[in-house]
Structure formats: structure tokens, C-alpha cells
């Protein structure tokens, strides 16, 4: 049966598969690339991202590690300094805290501390976020913390294109890059160009253009925010939705251009409110666009509580569509 070019060029794919394709592609393109982490090989990855890769690339390049987050993350730093391009997988952001010494004290500092003699071209991937009822030690969103640290870059791919495309760009970067994959996105499916390639990791993206208010978000909250924007549209509120994509560096230009246009902003961030990335973005808006604002900047963040287990409490703790829509209407004086 004859197919049109368009049909041939698009595949149905999940976010999980998109990440896997990105890893596979990187392993094929560059012999220096290898994947290292807990259960990435024989088990196939805690979230099944690396399933099948061990058979294809062997145990040297799909390297199962003991439960030694600091040890193997530090080994990734050392291997990167010596010319390899490691991808370190940490099962969840909560476990990454066991490797924080190597991320902050080694990876983020060595270029500066060595007077630019050594760089750390390392990629660290990890799962983040709530929604799977995994309770208070597997559900947090600490990417805002990591975005505090000079010397690393922090990415939050929210779309299939970014899940597929950010990894290679991150591997080509001469400095350490952390990639946060929201656990609620792994099963998300959609259509992606079969020849999808690398994407930039520096710019925010306007996912929905609008005139009345800027909704600024990233990661798993993007889809809730887009849904909230659809709800608002039924009430004649035309919201613009910005996907930050990169949490460090932040793309101030895209944020401020949007706010200058809409004159109102709400930031949606699954991190806790106090000391959050949302606070940083809000402050940048105040610093750079205060006189353009027609309303106070609003925020929808997680409640100040360790994420609880039961579904109703877990959902109440994190941003949802209703809260986002309500915050937007409040900023428009239509609460």
C-alpha cells in the first residue's frame, strides 16, 4: 500500500521511548557515551527507560551499578574529566541527594576551581515529581534547588520532542547538565517526527500564544497548565503558556517579552513555594518588568508538606488545573 511521505515521517511514541531513543542514538553516534546507574541494565531501568539497551550495547556501556549514588556519580565526573561522555541515571531526585556532594562540590566547581583546566561534560538524568502515590521519599520536585547552583545546567523536557532531542545537545555541552524527567510523563504518547533530532537547550518555548496572561511553567506541570489555558479560553481568557525547558540558565528574554505583552503572570511550579524557582522567576519579572504589570505576580506551587501517600492528599499537595485556572482569574480580577 502506498503511503504518503507525511505518514512515513511520523511515529507514535511514548515519552519513555523517546528518552530511550535519545540514549540509543547517542550510544551509536559517540563511542565515548555510556549509561551508568542502578538497574539500568538487566532490570531495564526503574522506569523501563533503558529496557533492551543492555542486549544491544553490552554491559560496559549499559553499566549496572551498586547502590552507591555518590560513588558512581563521582565516577561519572571523573570519567567525564578524562574524556568520556557518561550519562548517569539516578533513580529519583530524592536519591540524587546521596550524590549531591559530587554534583555540587565536584561537577559544578571543577572548571572554576581549576582555573578552566578541567571540564566535566557529564549528563545526569533523574526522575522527578509526584502523582504515582510514592509518598514522601520518592515524589519530590527538587529541580529548583539544583537550578540554584552555578556550574551546572538544568533541563526539564516536558514534550516528546524535548525528551528525544535534549539529551544529545546536553552530551555535546562541555559542562555538566542535569535532566529532570517528570514521572507522570513517561507514559504520555503522541506523534513525533521519525527523524527527530537534537534541540536547543537554552530557550524557553511559547507552547500556547495568548494575550491576556502569561502562565509560566515547566516539566509535568506544562500539561496541567495547557489544560487550564483551555478552560480559561471557554471564559474568554486568552492565556499564553510558556514552557521554560531550561531551568538554569533561565531564558529571561522569552519570559519578559511575554509579560510585557500580557502584563500579568502566574508561575506554576511543582516545587515547594518557599525559596522556589517560582520565587526566582517572580523576582526577575519584578526586576525587569515591574512597570509593565497590571496585577501582582501569582504562583501555584506545591503545599509545604512532604508529599503524602493517599491520592486525595497527594493531589491536593501539588498544582492542578483548577488551582492554575483560579490563580489566573485572580490575576485578572475575575476570581
Amino acid at each position: 500500500m502506498a503511503q504518503t511521505a507525511a505518514q512515513e515521517d511520523v511515529v507514535e511514541i511514548s515519552y519513555r521511548e523517546a528518552v530511550r531513543e535519545a540514549i540509543r542514538d547517542a550510544l551509536k553516534r559517540d563511542q565515548r557515551v555510556f549509561l551508568m546507574g542502578e538497574d539500568v541494565g538487566r532490570y531495564g531501568g526503574c522506569y523501563a527507560v533503558s529496557k533492551g539497551l543492555l542486549a544491544e550495547f553490552g554491559p560496559d556501556r549499559i553499566r549496572d551499578t551498586p547502590l552507591s549514588e555518590s560513588g558512581f556519580t563521582g565516577a561519572g565526573v571523573g570519567a567525564a574529566m578524562a574524556g568520556m561522555r557518561p550519562i548517569v541515571e539516578l533513580m529519583t531526585v530524592n536519591f540524587s541527594l546521596l550524590a549531591l556532594d559530587q554534583i555540587l562540590n565536584s561537577a559544578a566547581t571543577i572548571r572554576h576551581m581549576s582555573g578552566n583546566q578541567f571540564g566535566v561534560p557529564l549528563v545526569i538524568r533523574m526522575a522527578t515529581g509526584a502523582g504515582r502515590q510514592l509518598a514522601a521519599q520518592h515524589s519530590h520536585s527538587l529541580e529548583g534547588w539544583y537550578a540554584h547552583i552555578p556550574g551546572i545546567k538544568v533541563l526539564a523536557p516536558a514534550t516528546l520532542e524535548d525528551a528525544r532531542g535534549m539529551l544529545w545537545t546536553a552530551l555535546e555541552d562541555p559542562d555538566p547538565v542535569l535532566i529532570f524527567e517528570n514521572v507522570m510523563l513517561y507514559n504520555m504518547t503522541g506523534r513525533l517526527a521519525a527523524n527527530a533530532e537534537s534541540v536547543d537547550i537554552a530557550r524557553a518555548a511559547v507552547r500556547r500564544p495568548g494575550q491576556d496572561i502569561s502562565l509560566i511553567t515547566y516539566g509535568g506541570s506544562l500539561w496541567k497548565t495547557l489544560e487550564a489555558a483551555s478552560t480559561l479560553a471557554t471564559e474568554n481568557i486568552d492565556a499564553e503558556v510558556i514552557d521554560l525547558r531550561s531551568l538554569r540558565p533561565l531564558d529571561d528574554a522569552t519570559i519578559i517579552a511575554s509579560v510585557n505583552k500580557t502584563r500579568r503572570a502566574v508561575i506554576v511550579d511543582e516545587g515547594w513555594r518557599s525559596g522556589s524557582l517560582a520565587a526566582e522567576i517572580g523576582m526577575r519579572i519584578v526586576e525587569q518588568a515591574f512597570w509593565e504589570l497590571d496585577a501582582p505576580v501569582g504562583r501555584v506551587c506545591s503545599e509545604e508538606v512532604p508529599i503524602p501517600y493517599p491520592r486525595h492528599l497527594e493531589q491536593a499537595a501539588i498544582p492542578d488545573v483548577a488551582k492554575i485556572a483560579a490563580a489566573a482569574k485572580a490575576a485578572l480580577g475575575r476570581a
Binding site: 563521582g74 565516577a75 570519567a79 574529566m81 568520556m84 565536584s106
Partner: peptide
């Protein structure tokens, strides 16, 4: 000379990684 590392114990994982890179290449 891969540094003066001032986190006690912090240099050991780096050494493992440097050696791993050597081995893989």
C-alpha cells in the same frame, strides 16, 4: 594532576571514574 580536593573522601569516586575512562579506552 586532578586536584586538591577539599571534601574528605570526595576524591575517591573521581579516581574511580578516571580509571574507568582509562579502562574503557
Amino acid at each position: 594532576f586532578y586536584g586538591g580536593n577539599a571534601i574528605v573522601g570526595g576524591g575517591l569516586p573521581l579516581a574511580v571514574g578516571l580509571a574507568l575512562a582509562g579502562r574503557m579506552r
